[in-house]
Design a protein around this nucleic acid. Structure first.
Ligand SMILES: NC(=O)c1ccc[n+]([C@@H]2O[C@H](COP(=O)([O-])OP(=O)(O)OC[C@H]3O[C@@H](n4cnc5c(N)ncnc54)[C@H](O)[C@@H]3O)[C@@H](O)[C@H]2O)c1
Ligand SMILES: NC(=O)c1ccc[n+]([C@@H]2O[C@H](COP(=O)([O-])OP(=O)(O)OC[C@H]3O[C@@H](n4cnc5c(N)ncnc54)[C@H](O)[C@@H]3O)[C@@H](O)[C@H]2O)c1
Lengths: 216, 216
DNA sequence: TATTTTTTGTGAAACCTTTCACATTTTTGT
DNA sequence: ACAAAAATGTGAAAGGTTTCACAAAAAATA
């Protein structure tokens, strides 16, 4: 096995490189240097090279990286060279927005099933997908070979659902409930916490951080 | 001036402490030790103490931190001991979900104005707020003393709008468009990129990161 | 009141991430 | 074919963040 210990920041930057390479491909670039790629992503060339070097040597000295090939390599690293079966639980305000969002589908995150506990919603149709009853959650997750779950239920319901989701072997969860959920070590859960981002912005506003950057 | 250089992680942890303290207050705790607070947030006690120590000495040795007071101190640090006037631009799928989300209002982020460029949406009402025409963006942002902008427009429209928003002095933006926006150094912009989170999850799935943690 | 226990606040150490700097390789130009 | 220029890949240095460990202070106990 190759040696692992890749930081979260590196993975996030790979996502950025991937988008940049997509654009570059559309602009008909054949190759790109770390310098130019860094400039587009507001990073340093060394950072770009170091990030990529964790996964192999993809470039050519004196020339740079082959756009199309590097894009493919990163897709493979990120696991987006395939599609994933996704279930969305909680078809409320945010859940509905997510179902309507075509970008996920296009990126290979295929929302296959929807769940809700509200009788008025069960059986209804969202973008061609029927809303199922959470009572049949585990059974349906398995039947549809779901690999990734998006959670958009109220915070109070989230932990209970996560327990079921984990119980049937799901290893990746994207959570929108503003709560810290308990999962076993081998399950990755990412929480999208908008309130926290607003608080960060609020902090920068009251601390005028950017204005008085250097320490006095 | 006090010496600054607080990391993003510290601020995010303050947000977590704040929520934990809220809960603790409801549970009628008078004081809390760094040990207990750390346990609730899955951190180390040293981390909690170090984070807080950047802002002062709020605890009592042998006893811990006074829950109510510490909560107030953190609120002040984060700038959430007040309300902020917020404008939301782009009342589509995700925009509508955000307007309906009462939690923001309750947290002091007061969505005062909505904007859209779609004639069918302009003049319509969302949760008691009328949608205004983006043609009058700068004028209305100023009139309503907006301090923070939430951007929920298509990626293709985002940069142009940001330029206007920045032009009338806004210093904090929460962006949902999956694109890297250019803003001056003194403007803080946070981008909520769900696709990137999904990609991170996808990476952990293909790399089975959690399972084979230790380097071989 | 004296002793033990608890717990903070904080320098120093350990750890992790980014940047530097340069040998090496390949391309480009003459 | 050779020299100059461009650009990678990577150890080492620098910079940041987290954890350790302990003195100091307060609380609890006897
Ligand atoms: N709306 C937003 O803009 C927003 C923003 C940030 C975070 N969030 C979070 O996202 C989550 C959903 O928010 P929302 O605004 O869409 O709420 P919502 O009430 O509109 O939707 C929640 C949905 O979950 C369903 N539900 C409730 N209990 C369930 C259960 N046990 N099993 C299955 N489904 C269940 C409800 O029937 C409803 O359809 C909440 O945790 C909220 O805090 C929402
Ligand atoms: N829907 C989701 O779940 C989701 C998830 C992640 C990111 N996003 C991002 O959020 C943004 C909005 O997504 P959406 O699904 O709500 O799209 P949407 O098309 O439903 O909404 C976009 C809204 O912006 C308005 N608009 C377009 N140009 C405008 C302009 N120049 N000025 C003002 N308003 C303008 C449109 O009229 C529309 O009401 C997009 O950038 C999208 O990529 C959406």
């Amino acid at each position: 096995m190759r040696e692992r210990k890749i930081s979260e920041s590196t993975i996030h930057r790979l996502s950025h490189y991937y988008r940049a390479l997509n654009t570059l491909e559309k602009e008909h670039f054949e190759t790109i240097s770390s310098k130019e790629l860094a400039k587009r992503e507001k990073l340093t060339p060394a950072q770009v090279r170091k990030d990529l070097s964790f996964f192999g040597s993809f470039g050519t000295r004196g020339l740079g990286y082959p756009v199309k090939e590097l894009k493919g390599r990163i897709a493979k690293i990120l696991g987006i060279d395939r599609t994933w079966n996704v279930a969305l639980i909680g078809v409320g305000n945010i859940g509905s927005a997510l179902v309507s969002y075509k970008e996920f589908q296009r990126q290979g995150f295929n929302i296959k099933v929807l769940f809700d506990s509200d009788q008025r919603k069960i059986g209804s149709n969202h973008k061609g997908i029927t809303v199922l009853d959470t009572d049949h959650l585990e059974e349906e997750l398995q039947k549809n070979k779901i690999e990734l779950v998006v959670l958009a239920v109220p915070a109070s319901a989230a932990q209970n659902i996560v327990d079921h989701v984990v119980h049937c072997g799901i290893k990746a969860i994207l959570n929108f409930a503003p709560i810290k959920l308990k999962v076993p070590d081998d399950v990755e859960i990412r929480t999208e916490n908008m309130a926290m981002e607003l608080e960060y912005l609020s902090f920068t506003l009251v601390n005028n951080k950017k204005g008085e950057r250097k320490k006095t």
